[in-house]
């Protein structure tokens, strides 16, 4: 999936995340959730458990718990809590909202992994080239600053500083390190600016180079995505995806268009599974 062109990948995530947020249909939501969870497992391997059980599950459960407490609509009354009815519909709706949140979290986890800094900068550079360059400079300076800070701290320890046990002593020492960082960063910014000017920066119109190639595969995938999105939109506009949780859970009767659109959603959601398996044979 990392092999996709940034634009293809970006369009994919744009589609799948927007549909995941808008399609709260009781039959379609589980499709998105199942696909997102399997992608996360496939990509992360063992560490997926921590992400899913530690973050996604609590979020979903919290939503499922809170909704029935504040929302008392629905026909199926399970029990009364004080004077308020706890209904099955509102429990289900909370669960569904939680599932939606969890699936969006999973999709974002995947998107962040696929669209790394380099690809984001590329996407930026199309609309805001200056911003993209600043981003690249910043990403270069962050590790540099971190390393310099550690080096200064160590150098000062070697010169006999930083052993103070008092809070005041530690604070003064932190001030010294900050001052040293300030001098250093101003000076190094000057030298880096020299290196930029020596290579002609700021003297004319820049072009934007990138290493990504938009090939036939990307074109085909993009066409497929457009087709799937069109089917889904058609389904949504024709009301195939209308549903209600209150007063009772119900949805529009299944028509051929519903089946087609649902199939399109199935394909859309499970596409990454196919890419991930091809690229990550190690799992």
């Amino acid at each position: 999936m990392e092999r996709l062109h940034p634009i293809t990948a970006f369009v994919y995530f744009l589609l799948v995340i927007s549909f995941a947020i808008t399609l709260l249909h009781p039959l379609l939501l589980p499709v998105s959730l199942a696909a997102a969870v399997s992608c996360v497992i496939l990509r992360r391997g063992r560490s997926a458990l921590r992400f899913l059980l530690g973050l996604c599950l609590p979020m979903a459960l919290l939503s499922a718990l809170i909704n029935p407490l504040v929302n008392h609509r629905g026909a199926t009354i399970l029990f009364y809590l004080g004077r308020n009815a706890i209904t099955g519909e509102s429990l289900l709706f909370g669960l569904m909202a939680g599932a939606m949140l969890a699936s969006v979290l999973c999709w974002f986890d995947l998107a962040v992994a696929v669209l790394d800094n380099e690809k984001l900068i590329y996407l930026f550079s199309r609309s805001a080239p200056a911003l993209a360059l600043v981003l690249s400079l910043t990403l270069r300076f962050l590790p540099l600053y971190r390393r310099q800070m550690a080096a200064i701290r160590e150098a000062r320890a070697g010169a006999g500083f930083g052993a103070e046990a008092t809070r005041r002593g530690r604070l003064t020492e932190a001030g010294h390190i900050f001052q040293a960082m300030l001098s250093w960063s101003l000076e190094s910014a000057l030298e880096t600016a020299d290196s930029m000017r020596a290579r002609g920066y700021g003297s004319g119109k820049r072009s934007n180079f990138h290493v990504f190639r938009f090939d036939a595969r990307d074109r085909n995938i993009l066409l497929l995505l457009i087709l799937l999105a069109a089917l889904l939109l058609a389904g949504a506009l024709r009301g195939c995806f209308s549903y209600a949780y209150f007063p009772v859970v119900s949805w529009a009767a299944a028509t051929p268009l519903f089946y087609t659109a649902a199939a399109a959603y199935l394909v859309l959601c499970f596409l990454p599974l196919f890419w991930l398996r091809r690229n990550h044979a190690k799992f």
Partner: peptide, 23 residues
């Protein structure tokens, strides 16, 4: 401090971008 960008390929291209050369 000679290096400006975060990626090796971008660093190589940096001066050429400044000259406005085509991709």
């Amino acid at each position: 401090l000679q290096l400006v960008t975060d990626k090796v390929w971008h660093e190589l291209a940096f001066g050429l971008e400044n000259l406005g050369l085509p991709s």
